[in-house]
Design a binder for these strands. Structure first.
Lengths: 337, 337
DNA sequence: TTGAAAGCGCTAACAT
DNA sequence: ATGTTAGCGCTTTCAA
């Protein structure tokens, strides 16, 4: 087998096959016609040597890459992880490799570091998860010379974008709660990516349309436990009969706070979440929520990026409306409340 | 500013600074001494041009890379996502970039594809998540010529490895349940990575040591809902007073199945999970479980990899014992059961 | 300490 | 259809 220590190169293959280096390259890339006879020789040599072309050399000379970067503020929270999974699946199907770049905060220094890390690579393109401020900041420092797609968040000028229409879904959810007979709906917000948060604005719109009072927004962190204290506060207010939480984990924390305070869900207070977390259905009571297809968001995002990479500027925006999922954590208010 | 379309190269910097290309390279890598005067000139030129060296060119010539690959069977399930997060954080701190490679099944074809994708890249090293069969299969096809670290799973010969001692933790948890007065403990297993699963073997060891009966193992899938049917079955058997589930999500499904069948947790049946999922504490009742530090596992894994990359074969194994977390889903059995 | 020369492994451009 | 030549942007000899 004649294995040397180092990996075989394209010239080893060419030599073994008795052809020139470019001919091997042609077989590899399929860019030009090669006679069946030589192709077979080359393929045999490739197999014999277990040759794999060096991505680095390829990228250097062709200036094209089969790698994309994903810039994200977090990789393990449900929405992020699912979105990244969707991107990876779509990318893999097209032969692309995915590189992860985490931006932990919106500090200029941290954002610059991440952007520099991305820009050192020769990339086919970048997908930015714009769920939170770090992502937003990174997007704006990325520059124009690279295909970029933004995922989620508010509409961007000049950047292709795939979104979930959270505002419409939140509006529908709030209307559903109002339709159950609640006089108004309280709202617990997750940390927003900007001043305007789709979930919050949809909620507000529904209340305004219905002529209902718009209670002060309460804030939670990304930690589900932060919902407990909020739940207790809400439970202490007899006016509160329905609560819409920015995500399912917070809703679970809020429900715990409410039950710890001695009130019941949904008999005393209806609670709804957002996202349709895998555990939402198993919760007691099963959580009314909005089914967000994060993996699909990721897939749509990669498809938009692929179009940009290929220069097909055909579509630049993809929006999908998440569906309301009615379960048992919401009900009509009791009489007299 | 004289911006051209293309990115500035090292020769643009050299020209602007009035030095040779290798001198710029020396400033970049810090590999050799450069006089303060020239260094300053070079740094000014780099800043002026917003120059970033091409990773591809660097890798090609130096045969060294600052990129690692993570091979995983899944990226969005809790344990995986957290582990990847831990790897990424440790890698980023050392200036490494992380590339994700998903292996969806243990099919030879799929594993080969993934391994080929990894081997095309010039990598500093690879971290393989050995939580499941695809990871195990990939590890064994990776070859010897690249620093590799395995995470979790059974002990590997010849490969540095970081693990969580699940068997010891499962044993402790089972002993705790037995100590509460249960005659035996039933076990619901998540899909194992091999024939021998640490959680299952620790459970079995504790029962055997205590002279307790070893009930047949029940299997669940990774889908929490698969636990519901198992929970109903368990609830139908009056002998069952304690159940140890392979992870918290399954435990939540099992608990739902048990309560749907009209029995209570923990009054009728104690249920324990594994992992300390962020929602375990919020569950009703809060779940007794084992705190698995997946992010720490990832961090330790990267550290082991770094040692291998640097040729410091000092440590090749890192084990940590997850801690038992006692909450309210487990209690002493009722009298007469 | 610095520069000149060589070359990493591949693809692109241009021959034929 | 195939080979020859050139060169991607760097780091690494090697001399000076």
């Amino acid at each position: 087998m004649g294995r040397t220590g180092r990996n075989p190169t394209i010239s080893d293959v060419a030599e073994l096959a008795g052809v020139s280096v470019p001919t091997v390259s042609r077989v590899l890339t399929g860019a030009a016609k090669v006679s069946p006879a030589k192709r077979e020789l080359v393929e045999a040599a490739i197999a014999e040597l277990d040759f794999r072309p060096s991505a680095a050399a390829r990228v250097l000379v062709s200036r094209r890459s089969q790698t994309i970067a994903v810039i994200a503020g977090n990789t393990s929270r449900y929405g992020y992880a699912e979105t990244i999974r969707g991107i990876e699946i779509a990318a893999r199907a097209e032969g692309y490799t995915v590189m992860i770049t985490v931006v932990e905060s919106a500090d200029a220094e941290e954002v610059d570091r991440a952007v520099a890390a991305v820009r050192m690579q020769t990339l086919a393109g970048v997908v930015v998860l714009k769920f939170d401020p770090p992502g937003v900041a990174a997007l704006h420092k990325l520059g124009e010379d690279l295909p970029v797609v933004a995922l989620s968040g508010t509409r961007e000028a000049g950047v292709p974008q795939a979104v979930l229409d959270e505002a419409a879904a939140a509006e529908e959810l709030t209307e559903y709660l109002l339709g159950l007979g609640h006089r108004t709906v309280h709202h617990v917000r997750v940390p927003p990516s900007r001043r305007v948060d789709g979930r919050t604005s949809g909620w507000k719109r529904a209340l305004t349309k219905a002529g209902a009072a718009v209670p002060a927004v309460r804030d939670a962190t990304w930690d589900p436990k932060s919902g407990i204290a909020v739940g207790r506060e809400l439970a202490a207010d007899p006016e509160v009969t329905a609560v819409f939480c920015g995500n399912d984990e917070i809703a679970m924390g809020v429900m715990r706070g409410i039950t710890e305070a001695g009130r019941r869900v949904p008999e005393d207070i209806s609670v709804a979440g957002f996202d349709d977390h895998p555990l939402a259905e198993l919760w007691s009571p099963p959580l009314t929520t909005v089914d967000q297809d994060f993996a699909g968001l990721g897939t749509r995002g990669f498809q938009l990026l692929k179009l940009a990479i290929d220069g097909t500027a055909a579509r630049r925006y993809s929006s999908e409306r998440p569906a309301l999922v009615r379960r048992e954590s919401t009900a009509a208010p009791r009489q007299g409340s």
